[in-house]
């Protein structure tokens, strides 16, 4: 049996992949037994691979090897923090799980200062664009009339959209209300554009899957499909 598998590994792999592909696509008709089988196989395989990565990529090199091969015993300090999470199932000690949770939450909160800067900092300076035409100067290219108009639109959109997201003042002024409404409309255009531009990426994935089914798989039996 094992020899058979080894001798035909390539072919088996392809047949398995075809079965998996069709099995998952079957949910498009409706949820059914075949899909359910592949769904559970999928979750099983994924869990198996996660266990593998956890051991091979994290626990073995960063924990086991460091402590038992290199003798850097202080890495064992990670153990109680990790194990305390399991106390959640004990009625008496479950508060201690919060120590570990607090540790992980604190790390995440501390990293936020950096991601906050990533979300806004560079975006601020790239907004600084002249809104009247200008001649070329130094390393900057000239700003044409249409460029200037585009820059003005750019700023206007930022103002409108940000106004839409203010929560804490009552909108009494008509101008503010109009600005916020414009902001919402602009958002809809922006979302439409994201939708449209994502379609191609998703289609590319589906096409390459079909390419596998028709050309690579079908092609092995019907040569002119290749």
């Amino acid at each position: 049996m094992l020899d058979f598998i080894s001798a035909n590994a390539g072919a088996i792999q392809m047949w398995v992949a075809v079965a998996c592909t069709l099995g998952i696509y079957s949910i498009l008709y409706k949820e059914n037994k075949i899909y359910r089988f592949f769904e559970h196989a999928f979750i099983g395989l994924a869990m198996g691979w996660t266990i593998r990565t956890a051991w091979v990529d994290v626990l073995y090199p960063n924990f086991y090897q460091r402590i038992f091969h290199e003798g850097r015993w202080w890495w064992i300090l990670a153990l109680p923090l990790g194990l305390m999470l399991y106390l959640i199932y004990s009625r008496k000690y479950n508060w201690m799980a919060r120590i570990s949770i607090g540790f992980l939450l604190g790390l995440s909160a501390g990293q936020t200062f950096q991601s906050f800067a990533g979300l806004y900092y560079k975006q601020i300076v790239t907004t600084f664009k002249p809104i009247v035409p200008q001649a070329a100067e130094g390393s900057m290219k000239a700003v044409t009339l249409s460029g200037a108009i585009n820059n003005l639109i750019f700023l206007a959109i930022i103002i409108c959209v940000m106004t839409y997201f203010f929560f804490s003042f009552e909108v009494k002024s008509k101008v503010v209300q109009k600005t916020a409404n414009t902001g919402r409309w602009v958002l809809m255009i922006a979302f439409g554009a994201i939708f449209g531009s994502t379609i191609m990426a998703r289609m590319a994935l589906f096409i390459s899957r079909m390419d596998f089914l028709i050309k690579q798989f079908g092609g092995t039996f019907v040569p002119w499909l290749k």
Binding site: Y120, I124, V125, T127, F128, K129, P130, I131, V132, Q134, E137, G138, M140, N151, L155, I158, I159, M162, F165, F166, F167, S168, F169
Partner: peptide, 29 residues
């Protein structure tokens, strides 16, 4: 906290507007 967030956003918006005006008047440098 939400009110504080609004202030924060207002500050950022103000910097953007100021930046555009100053760049328009004084040039990119």
């Amino acid at each position: 906290s939400l009110v504080g967030q609004d202030i924060g956003k207002a500050v950022i918006l103000l910097i953007c507007i100021l930046g555009v005006l100053i760049t328009t008047i004084m040039g990119p440098d």
